[in-house]
Design a protein around this nucleic acid. Structure first.
Lengths: 105, 105
DNA sequence: TTGATAGGCAAGTGACGACTTGCCTATTGT
DNA sequence: ACAATAGGCAAGTCGTCACTTGCCTATCAA
């Protein structure tokens, strides 16, 4: 087999345009709460997503390991984590070792 | 706006596990025909996909720019093209330009 | 304690996507 | 010409997924 279940989750998470916008939002301003993400998504991206919709998207992103959540009182802050993206497409672009030409192993 | 329609196609194309397997196949042995891909997918990956299913997947990959097709007589050869993958995830990992600098800490 | 804010859970709806089924065209070999 | 091979087209089925709806819990301020 060539890919892990975790990788599959990442691909599935990235498949939705709205989830990618959420990642955009968190990349621009990390550590937002659910309500913050909702309002900023509406204001800045003309994205009319309900709170529950965003919440479910955050769940998917969480399961994919693309965000981490930290609870603080009644607030829950969400942080982007890009490590799952690091070598996601290497299996196709490599085959060998070009394209990554830093100081590869 | 933050992403092009072409990028969205790529994400959608990568969302399906079977399409990723097809890319795996072509990465390992480029320039296969539809029937070749079918049989090798069945033999080597225990993937029981019909010809039409694979054909439709190839269409999606084609539209995403991840493969190119070349017709020759009654054969049609499919070639992987990884250029759409090149900076796919940069919008989240960068923002700036760290993280791609090899000699990391 | 009461009300307001931040978030969670779960069932239901609707649409899109993966795959099938059936038939058709085009090229090659004999 | 005829059969066999390689592929294409289009309608239909079915499951998954995004989103909604409705209600519930928890924390904070007055």
């Amino acid at each position: 087999m060539s890919e892990t279940a975790a990788e599959a989750e990442v691909f599935k998470a990235l498949a939705d345009p709205n989830r990618r916008k959420i990642l955009d939002e968190l990349a621009e301003r990390d550590g937002q709460t659910l309500f913050e993400i909702c309002s900023r998504l509406t204001m800045r991206h003309q994205l009319g997503l309900s709170r529950q919709a965003v919440s479910q998207h955050l769940d998917v992103l969480l399961r994919a390991g693309l965000i981490r959540s930290r609870r603080e009182g009644r607030y829950k802050f969400h942080h982007i984590d890009t490590t799952p993206l690091e070598h996601l497409t290497d299996r196709w672009r490599g085959g060998g070792a070009r394209e990554n030409r830093c100081a590869s192993t």
